[in-house]
Design a protein around this nucleic acid. Sequence first.
RNA 1: GGAGGGGUCGCAUAGUGGUCUAGUGCGCACGCUUGGAAAGCGUGUGUGUCGCAAGGCACCGAGAGUUCGAAUCUCUCCCUCUCCGCCA
Length: 420
Amino acid sequence: MIDINLLRNQPEIVKTALKNRQKDPIVADQVLDFDKSRLKLLSQVEGLRSEQNVLSRAFQGKPTESQLKEASVIKEKLKTLEADLKVIEDKQNLVLEEIPNIPSDDTPIGKDDKDNVVIKTVGEPTKFDFEPLDHADLGEKLDILDIKKAAQVSGSRFGYFKGQGAVLEMAVMFYAFNKLVKKGFTAMIPPTMVKSEAEWKCGYTSNKNLMNAYYSSPEDDLIFISSSEHVVVPYHMDEILDAKKFPIKYVNYSPCFRREAGTYGKDMKGLLRVHNFNKVEMNIFTLPDYKISDAMCLEMLALEEELMQEFGIPYQVVQACTGDLPQPNRRMYDLNSWFPGQKAYRETHSCSNCGDYQSRRLNTKVKIDGKNELVHILNATLITDRAVLAIIENHQQKDGSIKIPKVLQPYTNFEVIKPI
RNA sequence: GGAGGGGUCGCAUAGUGGUCUAGUGCGCACGCUUGGAAAGCGUGUGUGUCGCAAGGCACCGAGAGUUCGAAUCUCUCCCUCUCCGCCA
């Protein structure tokens, strides 16, 4: 949620942001209108409550008839005014929640992901002296991925990692996880279901379309996480953190669940777009200073890059434009890896600074010079299944085998996946 | 899933309808005292919100209700502890 004071004091900033993010700026005025009437009502209600309190304190023992009468009058007035206030508060919040975060100044302005800007290309698309296969074909030939069986058992957009494929998956996850633990991140394996309230505080579900993106169990009021961010970021809700311990860095491993509603027909071959995948994620809490948190965002990006370089995957770094920015983000980079089977760069990572957009509702603060300030919160992919697919495609050999990157070999205990 | 106990200011506790504008202890901060420290003594000590300010309002797990008035009574929910059941 954005700061209502920003909207009150500098509405133009919010309106420009809305425009750039392809939203109707009228919501800014709607909130301000509600805010005006709300404050008016609020001062009336508080005035009445004050009268009520004064009167109540004057009662010693039993109140007299006339005192009771006076109190009843106040009570009746309060009843209607409080109801009005509640209605207008709810209305205001509903619209306010829809306003996304203000993009950073250097975020390119654009309509959708087509306007994202490539800021870096590392390596060249892998060259082969044969026609490379995609991971689905390779996976079937080598018996390391089973998509057909998964379709029978669980439906479309699921997969089995099998045999050496399963070992490779675990090796990639654990290598990445351990790498950050060695760099001082706190390791986390969080719950994979979250109460709707905590999910709401993360700021994604105020965009109503997003509820469609999640699996949920309404009778239990639980939502399956689409990323460990949704349970690790609320880990510090309603806390005042110790400034001396900043930045607070977590590396989390978890399965992730996404309905992928509205993506019918897209990426139907292979396991690039699945309902259920594994991910190692970074979540960082920094002091509330964009200089600090934006620098941290770049540090996370560097870690993503380091890993992909170790795995020998060519990639591009893309800066998301205003139209492609998720609701809580002020800035986002995507890392797109080369997939020889598709002859295309595909998104494997993202890296975001959400500023105080999430901490405002989560009520996660830090005491600075005696004042409590909302912290900045960042999230970034370290590695997912998609990177495993990229390894499979980029390291395929003419004889149909797959070479395992050196850094992973101590974790897989094999150097190559050979055809059966 | 069943039975019972409990959730109060950083921590521990008191509080069972008006004296709670939440007391006390610990912790913390500052001061006095001291050669210095400890002890002792004194003062202070949360969050949010409205307001230029003075100050007001709200917050005792969350929400609703009863009442002139709720930490206190009622209802629903959440969390937690103990026991039983089930179970990796």
